[in-house]
Amino acid sequence: MLKKDGVPSPEELEGVKPSQERLEEGPVVIVECMQEIPCDPCYYACPKEAFRPFGDINEKPEIDYEKCNGCSICIANCPGLAIFVLDYNYSEKEGLLKIPYELKPLPEKEEKVIVLNRAGEEIGKGRVVQVLNTKKQDRTAIISIAVPKEILMDARHIRLIRGSTDEG
């Protein structure tokens, strides 16, 4: 449970998941922002107006999944690093996960990495497909990782196999 240990319960997650049908249609955002806090940059970041305008800045974001095309601009604009993009049908067996990443060194394209879930537990291996780190992202890199479809909904972070940050 989020307020107890920082890990959302399945019930808490249910409220922020796009539908399975939408997931299968193509890349889409999942915004794991489940607390009313005063924050609104996601709304301003989205070129598709998929985030509904905030009436009160403390409201939780609401997303129109039909407008979202998974462009990923919002990922590096979320101060809470709570936005991810999922492409369920990336390949036959793999889904694509895009995460915000602020550790050094950055992984490299084609690098194999350990995939972690929301509790920081290892749940498998993934392959880095893209590393985006443009000036506009302001030092929050976006890493795209191909992971087995069955762990796509649980995978939320990576650890480098070549050594953790304290060795790099």
């Binding site: 240990d5 607390q35 929301r118």
Partner: peptide
């Protein structure tokens, strides 16, 4: 690159924003 063994908290709830808790938790802390 400094390890954090754990974050301990006397009350029954995380006092800070949950998104901050989640991002440190998924790193394994």
């Amino acid at each position: 690159g400094i390890e954090v063994e754990a974050i301990i908290e006397g009350s029954s709830q995380v006092g800070g924003y949950w998104v901050h808790a989640s991002k440190i938790r998924r790193m394994g802390v």
